[in-house]
Design a protein around this nucleic acid. Structure first.
Length: 581
RNA sequence: GCCGGUAUAGCAUAGUGGUAAUGCAACAGCCUUCCAAGCUGAAGACGAGGGUUCGAUUCCCUCUACCGGUUCCA
């Protein structure tokens, strides 16, 4: 944990966010909505500042990167091509004993005839699991320390046995945590937010159709009759479902529910759209349009910032992992063979970016993905990690995705997604021109995670002794001036003697110079300083009696609390310099 | 999801089977010449639903949300 943090840093940051209007819980007056957050007056400024910095760094200061702003609602075909519709529907399984939830495809797979020891965390847990299994299956496993023995996979691999008697069906795997074979059915993980486009709710049609079909004696025949037209299409949900049923792939008891589900899917098929689970796909899908209209050619990038939506297995740590989040992504298209050099380049660029605005740059690091951790199409991936209060965790992923995405969209859409290089020879044929699908480097950052990182990085508590000898704590958010939601506060020392008027005058001149300055007259001067420390305002200008006499003001630094007296015409250049304008 | 914990005003704490107190903050005003000063005033809460009860914020159940663990991602 960083030295500048108190123990309960998360609690304090969350409280400050609410108290000062950075982040509120969504739908709070209706009891709140899980894992959704609203950014208040200061939070929306902070987020906008961060995202503007990213956009400036990635797009407006580079000749070979252009931006897009795509629709959040995208056609289902996009997600079938990207693999999100299928590949992300990971089969999840619950262990009835330990209650853990895990991915079936990642679980250990003891073979036929193997013993199935259940390994618990400690003796107490072993005892309670032993009792639970006895209650559920009426068997007593032998316990040795924290291990329970007696179960094995039958020789044909179909059952879990105890003393030669089949107890339950064997799923082919056991739970990763304790090795239990007492598991629920596989259920797919609903990654994407699905919705329907169109003014008429497709559920009207679905319920009507189901009411008619469910009256039929032979459901399969009734479906075939009702969907005769759709059944001719091989990729129609109803066609696939009927085929699975006739293959016997669906257990008898589940057939009816399975078919009813397929009917609903068929009816909603054409109106189904998804909220994007990542901003990346639009950049692949619009690759051709963007390249042709912007005059770009590889190496070049398409950048996008915006919201994405995922149903998470678990949401946690405030805004760190939420269902609705905001991304800042670049897809950088380059010549095949040059991708790893570009990855090194973007790694540096991105790490420099995060460190630039941080008080503690050493709390960022790279983590290289091991080969077995990489997606099958990727040929390299680094995460930028931050040292959160709960440990190192991800902030940005920089992946080398080969030409996988463009390739998939070529296949699914039938549109060529290539660049034709007139100057170069195709390495395979040796002939000009070279038509290739660019390889892609993808630096994909979480904007809302970045926000959390800088909230944590900025949070400081300083204890000092006040005039009465009492210990007081100063909470100060040491935001980088570029990120600070309020850039400068102008404070009349007291609300009379022409000080407010003078302050308003100064604010008007600052705003005319492009500095968003805020007026604040509420409460004593000390309170106002404390409040602006807490929201991270880098400097406060104070108008006092002397201002009216000689045209000087004091300017106070947030981090040191030191004040210097300057003339009014020095204010703008000084504040501008601090903001890097 | 699951396990454990929590839920009283914006925040922090009281308290009670007969609907709630205090401090800070916020708001209006007065006063105030540099680091959360003072005075006055007004406002604001028992997370939601159900049950037991004459009566529930308090006891019971359910739900919702949050925090900590467990697993997927930006």
């Amino acid at each position: 944990m960083a030295a500048h943090w108190p123990d309960d840093i998360m609690k304090k940051v969350v409280a400050l966010c609410k108290r000062r209007g950075f982040v509120f819980q969504s739908s709070e007056i209706y009891d709140g909505l899980k894992s959704a957050y609203d950014y208040g007056p200061l939070g929306s400024e902070l987020k906008r500042n961060l995202m503007n910095e990213w956009w400036a760094d990635m797009v407006t200061t580079r000749e070979n990167v252009v931006g897009i702003d795509a629709s959040i609602i995208m056609k289902a075909d996009v997600w079938r091509a990207s693999g999100h519709a299928a590949g992300f529907s990971d089969p999840l399984v619950d262990c009835f004993i330990s209650k853990e939830r895990f991915r079936a495809d990642k679980a250990p797979r003891p073979e036929a005839g193997a013993d199935l020891p259940i390994l618990c965390a400690d003796k107490g847990q072993a005892k309670s699991y032993q009792a639970l299994i006895q209650k559920m299956h009426n068997i007593e496993l032998s316990r040795s320390g924290k291990e329970l023995a007696g179960l094995r996979v039958s020789d044909d691999g179909k059952h879990v046995e105890f003393n030669g008697t089949a107890l339950v069906d064997y799923s082919g795997y056991v739970s990763p945590c304790i090795g239990s074979p007492f598991l629920s059915e596989e259920r797919s993980f609903n990654l994407m937010f699905k919705t329907n486009i169109g003014a008429v709710d497709p559920m009207n049609d679905a319920s009507q159709t189901l009411a008619e079909l469910s009256a039929a004696e032979d459901l399969t025949a009734a479906i075939q009759e009702r969907f005769a037209g759709n059944c001719k299409r091989k990729d129609a949900p109803i066609t696939k479902a009927l085929a699975r049923v006739s293959d016997g792939a669906v257990p008898e008891k589940d057939v009816r529910a399975f078919l009813i589900r397929a009917v609903i899917e068929q009816i909603t098929f054409n109106s189904t759209v998804y909220l994007r689970p990542e901003t990346a796909q639009a950049m692949f899908v619009q690759f051709k349009n963007v390249m042709e209209t912007s005059g770009q050619k590889p190496p070049f990038g398409i950048a996008q910032m915006g919201k994405s939506f995922r149903n998470e297995v678990t949401v946690e740590h405030f805004i760190f992992r939420s269902c609705e989040f905001e991304q800042m992504e670049l897809e950088f298209f380059c010549e095949p063979g040059t991708q790893l050099e570009w990855m090194e380049y973007w790694k540096d660029q991105r790490m420099n970016f995060w460190k630039r605005y941080a008080n503690y740059p050493d709390e960022f690091m790279f983590r290289k993905h091991e080969d077995d951790e990489l997606a099958h199409y990727a040929d390299g991936c680094y995460d930028v990690e931050y040292k959160y209060p709960w440990g190192w965790d991800e902030l940005e992923g920089i992946a080398s995705r080969t030409d996988h995405d463009l390739h998939e969209h070529e296949i699914h859409s039938g549109t060529k997604l290539r660049y034709v290089d007139q100057e170069k020879e195709d390495p395979e044929t040796g002939k000009k021109p070279w038509s290739y699908r660019p390889f892609v480097i993808e630096p994909s950052a979480g904007a809302t995670r970045g926000l959390l990182v800088y909230l944590l990085d900025a949070y400081h508590e300083e204890t000092r002794t006040d005039a009465k000898g009492k210990e007081v704590t100063r909470t100060v958010m040491k935001f980088h001036p570029k990120l600070a939601p309020i850039k400068c506060a102008v404070l009349p020392l007291v609300g009379k003697d022409g000080m407010p008027e003078k302050a308003r005058e100064i604010i008007a001149s600052m705003q005319a110079a492009g500095i968003p300055a805020k007026y604040d007259q509420k409460g004593s001067i000390g309170k106002r300083y404390a409040k602006h420390d807490e929201v991270g305002t880098p400097s406060c200008i104070t108008i006092d009696g002397q201002t009216l006499e000689d045209g000087t003001v004091t300017i106070r630094d947030r981090d040191t609390t030191e004040q210097v007296r300057i003339t009014i015409d020095q204010i703008i250049p000084r504040v501008k310099a601090q903001l890097g304008l």
